[in-house]
């Protein structure tokens, strides 16, 4: 940190004021409201509000629909992260191997990053919807009863593929950066000692990219939890029969569609706790990574 600083007293507050104002009005005030609302209950006509303490939380945690959404979220996040990171790692390793066309491949692999999640969902829905999707038509021709608008597992498969597709670019770029930072001399030494490429990957490359993989796992989990609202809303709207209703989607439907404010607020607070935990993990890891070099 520079030791020479400017002596002004008022100016720094002026410089900070726009950002602080925005965070107070649009972040802290609503967050406090959410906390407060989560301990209230309104009667069905919105006439009387009573303080119920932690009642909303115990109701939410005992609600089978919420537990179902929690399980759906876990299945969705794990499948999306594994599928997307696996594909990206395979592509990044291949991109490290080729001598020509690296930039060309990279350009063609990064654009899904710029596609909005909701639009990504729709693109896959165009190909796989039973009414006009070419692939739905081919699957049905092959004798499969394909209808993601009716079958929960197929709906889940479709949103997972769309969500993972969008995230491949991001994971690919980070894996490429991690692979490039591995010292050539290590790999050469191992090759001279007779380690084949499979063994080199297992014993050198994989341990060295483990920190990046862990970082990506956290980022992908956050993405699957929060940024995929658009995909789910556009492709399945949480259906069929709640098979793809994630926690964030449930906060939205309970708040804006069912108008159950207390429960929706309690769910928001639980989500907030999850984000705080994930962010803490992410930052602890960033500090550790410094030592890895």
């Amino acid at each position: 940190m520079p030791k020479a600083v400017f002596p002004n007293r008022l100016l720094p507050y002026l410089l900070l004021s726009p950002q602080i104002a925005v965070t107070l009005v649009f972040f802290y005030w609503p967050a406090v409201q959410a906390l407060w609302q989560s301990m209230l209950r309104e009667d069905p006509f919105g006439l009387k509000t009573t303080f119920v303490g932690l009642q909303n939380f115990s109701n939410v945690l005992a609600d089978p629909a919420w537990l179902n959404a929690a399980w759906t979220t876990v299945v969705f996040s794990v499948s999306t992260s594994v599928l997307s990171m696996g594909t990206a790692l395979l592509l990044a390793t291949a991109a490290e191997k080729v001598l020509t066309g690296k930039a060309f491949y990279r350009t063609l692999l990064i654009w899904p990053y710029a596609v909005a999640p909701a639009v990504a969902g729709l693109l896959w829905l165009f190909m796989f919807n039973p009414a006009m999707g070419t692939f739905a038509y081919m699957l049905r021709d092959a004798g499969l009863a394909w209808d993601p608008l009716l079958d929960g597992d197929q709906a889940m498969g479709l949103v997972v593929v769309a969500a993972a597709w969008k995230q491949i670019s991001y994971n690919f770029l980070f894996f490429v950066a991690a692979l490039q930072s591995i010292p050539r001399s290590l790999l050469e030494a191992a090759a001279i000692d007779g380690a084949r490429s499979g063994k080199r990957f297992r014993t050198i490359v994989f341990p060295l990219i483990a920190p990046t993989s862990f970082f990506l796992l956290v980022v992908n989990t956050v993405y699957a939890f929060f940024d995929t609202f658009g995909i789910i809303d556009a492709v399945t709207a949480g259906g069929p029969a709640r098979a793809t209703e994630t926690l964030v989607y449930k906060v939205y439907t309970d708040g804006f569609v069912n108008l159950d404010l207390g429960s929706s607020a309690a769910q928001s607070v639980i989500l907030m706790a999850i984000v705080i935990a994930l962010t803490a993990v992410q930052f602890r890891y960033v500090e550790r990574r410094v030592h890895y070099g």
Binding site: T23, F27, A34, F226, A265, S268, L271, V275, T279
Partner: peptide, 17 residues
């Protein structure tokens, strides 16, 4: 104060915002 906003994505404060 600015840092903590990282932990408050729109999705968790939908209704009050």
């Amino acid at each position: 104060m600015i840092f903590i906003t990282l932990m408050l994505p729109v999705e968790v404060r939908i209704m009050p915002t």
